[in-house]
Each structure stands twice: as C-alpha cells, then as structure tokens.
Design a binder for these strands. Structure first.
Lengths: 237, 237
DNA sequence: CGGCCATGTTACCGGCTTGTCACCATTTAT
DNA sequence: ATAAATGGTGACAAGCCGGTAACATGGCCG
C-alpha cells in the first residue's frame, strides 16, 4: 500500500534508523537524509508529504533547511526535533516556517501522533465534496446526503466513511483504519472495524450483504470502490 | 485576493527576515520597521492593512506603539508577538487595542492563518445581514432581531452566534469555537462552549431540545444549519 | 459597599455509541 | 471433505458525551 511519504532529515544513524522503523511500522513510506544538503534536495525532488527535521545538522542547520524548503514554495508540514537546551534558540526564530517541534527526548508515539495530525490537516482540502452514486459526502459540514436528504451517521461511521472515500480505490488495512479513525493510544480489537463497517453498510448500501461501495478484502481490510464517480472539487470558503 | 500590505515591527534581524520572507511568499507586500519609533511612523505613513508587532522593542515597547497607533485613529488589525513569560501582559495588550497575539515560539503557518482571518474580517463589508427563519442578525449593530423584535444576547452568546452564522453549514470544532470566540491563550474548558450554546439555544430555538439551527456534532462541535435560508447581502444598513 | 449580571466550573443524568462476545456463513487449506 | 480461519451480524452492557441546572466568581454600576 502506498501511505504518505515522510522525509526524515537526521544525522545521527541510530535515531535515523529508529525513526524510519517507526514510521514504516505505522504504514508510511520513508525517505531519509543524513545532512541538510541531502535533506533539501530530497524535499525538493521527492516531494514528501511531511518532513521531520532535526535541528542540529552538519553544515546547514535545520532552520536554514526549513527556510530554503519554504523558499521553494513547498508547503508541506515540517516538524522539528530539538535537543534540550536549544529551546532558547527556538524563541529566536528557529521555528520559523516549521509547523511543530518536539524536544528530545520525545515519545515516538507522540511524534507519530503529531505528524498524523498535521497530515490530516494538510490532507483536507476543506470544502471538498465526494459524490458517489446518489450520495454526496460534504467534508466541511461533516454531512452525508442521499439525494439531498441527510443520512444520519455516528461519529465513528462518519470518520470511517470519510477515510475510505478519501482513499477510494485503495486497499486499507484494519490497522491503518484503526490508526486513522480510532487514534493511536486506543486499544481496540480489529473486529471493531468490521463492526463499524457493518453498521455503515446498512446505511449506504442497497444490499449490505452484497456491498457496492465498501468492499471487503479478505485477510487485509477494506476498500472503497468509487469506480466511476464524480469527484467534485468545490472552492473553499 | 492578497496584495495587502503587512507592517512588521520586529527588532531581531533573523526573525524580521524570516517573517518578511514568509509573508511575501504568501503574496503580501511587506513593510519593515526595526524599532518602535520607526514602526509608528510607518504605520501612520504607509497605512498598512495589518500590523505584526513584537512586544519587546528598543526605545518604545509594543504596547505603547499599539496605543499610539490607535490614538491616530487607525483601525487596522494588530497582531502582537510575545515571548514566554510575558503572558501576564497580554490582557494589557488586548485592552490597548491589539486584536490578537501569539506566544513565541509560534508556527508561522498559524501566524499567517490568523492574519488572513483578520484581514478577511476587515475586508468584509460592514452592515451585512444574515437572515434565517424569523431571525435577522445585523452584524453592524451587533443585534439579533426576531420578527423585528430585539432578542437580548450576552456578549458571548452574540459572538458565538455570529461565528456560527458566518460559517453556516460548516462543522466547527469546540477548539475552533473557543479560539474564535474566547480568544487564543485563554484557558477555558470546552464545556463552556456547550454551556454557551445551551443558553443561546434557549433564545433562538423553538424547541431547544430539538435544535433547528445550532445542531450538535457529537465528539466534534457544532454546526449552524442555515439550510434554506435567505442570505441577504446588504451593503450598508 | 452591595447587588446584579455574565460566565466559567462542577456535578449529575440520560441516551446514544460502541466495543465485545457469541454465533453463523463463507472461504481456504490440508 | 473436513477443519480452521475469517468476516458478517445480532445482542448487550458499559462508558462516554452532551444537556442541564446549580454553584462560584468576578466585574460593573449604582
């Protein structure tokens, strides 16, 4: 599966390796860079969806990289990693252009959570509408309409549907779904996904036993079959 | 859309440079001032559309600048930048006529977002009226009328309603509402939003238990359902 | 100085959501 | 073919969330 791509710019090998493992474990694709120069190059060329950027880098520091990346017109979220004692520098402007920063030592789980939050925000072209069949999913208002009539969805159902629709045509593992819909620190059986899919199907499928939209991928998870749908991109408000 | 002029009053060169880059990147014209005196002069002479004002400035501090700018009869939005530990002064700053403030280190993206919000508001024609059902919200006079009769709203209730109505049809998170209505660094429980919605509903809903206008989005926040309303865009009332 | 009003917090309640379990259907492997 | 595994589905109980009222606080004005 093709998750989003994270670029990790970190000179210390152990940390670099650890971060790579963790992000891949979480379902992302990972690009690595060991110094500022390579980091900037990678950011420009491979256009990652998010950059994790250590501040203490040989030759060019994180702040410069950050500024240069932004100077290229790139707008992806940048999360900075700083060591204790560098905080005062942050106040002086190291955070310029970055979206977030964590102080070492940090919890990897927290880093993942924050990155996920930024990605979610960046993913959202707020005001976008997804049309499939007689349905219309309006992200901005968090509503699902069937021929203009509102379909009542529970929070989980809505979140699930939005995720599926956004990634229409892509296989989503239960794990991925759990992470995106339920969050990180939640201990929930994978079956809960099935359960939620189940109730969702009752509301959007003509024949829930023979689903048209949310199809099961045995041993894997689910996939939304948008097929020949009309993706309407509405100007933001 | 953009092209508006931002005046940045900031004594620290790196920060000044970074802010300039970022605002220009975002499509604004930028005027710079390195100290309070120059800042005040620039504000008066070049009439920027918005001022970004550091508080710690040589010679004259940000509060004074703010007061003096307002004393000149200038009404453009002023966004203050403060360092940690100066928070206690914030109330002072807001009272002196600042519209917003951020605490360093801040995300430049957030600063841009807030400035954009202020500019959007300033751009909006005063005297706009929103009509829904038998109600009429008159922004210019900050009044809500029900069939011509004034409905008494507390300041918070009014601010909440105005926000909801302005963003009618959009899902608003509690967090968003808190920041827009209560302000940014205010420490207030999310429940306060609920409570305010509660009292507001009593005044505008026929059946507060089954709200027609302000609908609850479980686990998220609220949304104003303008539905089939009559949006009257009246220049000047 | 005292009372009123706005508003934030706390507590409690009721309902909806949802996670789990249990059982069944279907598919897959041996 | 049979057993194991996987997912669909109904039931159910627990927990969470928001509505609501009561209380506390603090500012403003007479």
């Amino acid at each position: 599966m093709a998750g989003e791509t994270i670029l990790i710019v970190e000179d210390e090998p152990a940390m670099r390796r650890g971060l790579k493992d963790n992000f891949e474990q979480a379902g992302y694709r990972v690009a690595l860079a060991a110094d500022g120069e390579a980091g900037l190059r990678a950011a420009v060329e491979s256009r990652p969806d998010l950059v994790v950027l250590d501040i203490m880098l040989p030759k060019v520091n994180g702040y410069e990289i950050c500024r240069l990346i932004r100077g290229q017109g790139l707008t992806m979220p940048i999360v900075m990693l700083t060591a204790k004692g560098e905080e005062s520098d942050i106040v002086l402007g190291l955070n310029l252009g970055a979206d977030d920063y964590l102080t070492k030592p940090f919890s990897v789980r927290e880093l993942l959570a924050r990155c996920e939050a930024h990605l979610r925000r960046a993913r959202e072209p707020a005001g976008k509408r997804y049309v499939f069949g007689a349905f219309e999913l309006d992200v901005a208002s968090r509503r699902l309409l069937r021929e203009g009539e509102a379909v009542e969805l529970t929070p989980k159902e809505y979140a699930l549907l939005e995720l599926l629709v956004r990634r229409a045509g892509r296989a989503l593992t239960r794990d991925e779904i759990l992470r995106q819909v339920w969050g990180y620190n939640v201990f929930v059986t994978g079956r809960s996904v099935d359960r939620c899919v189940n109730t969702l199907r009752k509301k959007i499928e003509d024949d829930p036993a023979r689903p048209r939209w949310v199809v099961t991928l045995r041993e894997v998870g689910y996939r939304f079959d948008g097929g020949n749908w009309t993706g309407v991109n509405q100007a933001k408000g």
